[in-house]
Simulated assay, not measured.
Amino acid sequence: MKPLARYASLANYVDLARSLGVDPFGMLRSVGLDPGGISLQDRWIPAEAVVELLEATAAQAQRDDIGLRLAELRRLSHLGPLSLVLREESSMRNALTLLIRHERMYNEALHTSLSEAEGVATVRIEIDLGVPAPDRQSIDLGVGVLYSLMRELSPATWRPLSVSFTHSPPVDQAMATRMFSGLARYDRDFDGVTFHASDLDTRIGASDPQLLEYTRRMLADTSAENAPTVAKRTRQLVEMLLPTGRCSVDQVARSLGVDRRTVHRRLSAEGTTFSAVVGDTRAALAGHLVAGRRYSLTEIASILGFASPSNFSRWFRARFDCTPREWRAARSDGR
């Protein structure tokens, strides 16, 4: 099964394409994507289509820095609820570990790794579509977003050693020079960011105004027209927290900046409970992850926050009336 990505990976694409004189909706249709779905950030789409879209847009605009331009528009707050959780981590090391752990929740083709050697730390980005395909713009987007997020989580004085790309320099390097402060290096053997390993234990600074505004919107009083907001935000946080082993109503409440009674009260007003949200979120993720073959059932059990594969298997059977293996086999057979 080919890897999927969420429409969230194309945040700001429409505005960027228009600013470059490109028809964004025509481009979306050209790669088989529904223009009407781009506002549904959590909708899964083929990762291959996202990669193809960025390459086609670069060709249409005659710009080989589309990925960097898109990355420049991203902020930590664009990660949604995950941004709040990242801000709670005590160090860059913990934040990067959490970010890497959750990458599969946004883009199954994206693979990020962190390594340390001789006082130097390196975060590498790879795109794996299962088939060879041009991916320069997607790599630029991934590295650019990673660099921007690290800057937002670090003190203002933070400066990496270099930002590396396996491809050749862009025709016009002005964008890369501005974004990476002259630290971009090309024709290297990996794509990613290199920095002092000691930076990993740097404490994360105070949250920025954008995140504060994002939190305020999340905590706005519910009304008839936005009643699903609290349940939706809780569900998103649950999805982010499941693999960490910290998925509790107390943790969700802390990430939202309220107490647990407020979470229970607001969910009750919407006709649901925290336990129901956790169960439904697990079920949705389980159905998707088990149907695919990118992760073993043991890995999926961990992703969903189960203490052991046997616990996951018992829960799955009770929820879906079949075992995970039977579910996977049925999907493979097209049933």
Rank of each mutant, 00 (worst) to 15 (best):
G21P: 04
P35A: 15
Y13G: 08
W44Q: 14
Q62G: 02
A58I: 05
R63N: 01
R63K: 04
G21L: 09
R43P: 04
V85W: 00
A58W: 00
A47S: 14
L86R: 00
V22A: 10
L76W: 00
S39N: 13
P46S: 11
W44G: 14
P24Q: 09
L20W: 06
G36P: 12
L76Q: 05
L82W: 06
V22P: 04
D65W: 03
Y13N: 08
V50C: 10
R74I: 02
G32S: 14
L40Q: 15
L16G: 04
L33V: 15
D65H: 06
A49C: 12
R63M: 02
P46Y: 09
L20E: 03
Q62F: 01
E48A: 15
L54H: 01
A59Y: 00
R63A: 01
L53E: 05
R18D: 07
D65L: 03
R75M: 02
G21Y: 04
D65P: 02
L68W: 07
E55L: 05
A17N: 08
Q41N: 11
R29N: 11
L86K: 00
V22W: 05
E52A: 15
L76N: 02
P35I: 15
L76H: 01
L33M: 13
G67Q: 05
L70V: 10
L84K: 02
L82D: 07
V22F: 03
V85C: 00
G36D: 13
V31K: 13
W44Y: 14
L79P: 04
L54R: 06
Q60E: 08
S19H: 07
A17I: 10
G37S: 15
D42A: 12
L16I: 09
L86T: 00
L53P: 06
R29F: 07
D15M: 11
P24G: 11
G37I: 15
D65K: 03
V22Q: 05
V50R: 11
G32I: 11
L86A: 00
G36C: 14
D34M: 14
R69M: 09
G32Y: 12
A56K: 14
G80P: 06
G36T: 13
G32N: 12
V31P: 10
L73V: 07
L53W: 03
A71E: 07
A71V: 08
E55K: 08
M27A: 13
D34W: 15
V50H: 10
E72R: 12
L70Q: 09
R75Q: 06
L70Y: 07
E55N: 08
G36Q: 14
P24N: 12
D64F: 01
L20S: 04
D15I: 09
V50D: 06
P24D: 11
S39R: 15
L54I: 01
S83Q: 01
Q41D: 07
I66F: 01
R69C: 01
P46M: 12
I45E: 09
D34T: 14
V14L: 12
A47N: 08
G37A: 15
G32H: 11
V14K: 11
D23P: 08
Q60I: 03
G36A: 15
G21M: 09
A56F: 01
I38H: 14
S83F: 00
E52L: 13
M27L: 11
D42P: 09
V31H: 10
I66Q: 01
D23V: 12
V50F: 07
L68C: 02
L79H: 08
P35Y: 14
L20Y: 04
M27C: 10
E48N: 09
D34Q: 15
S39G: 14
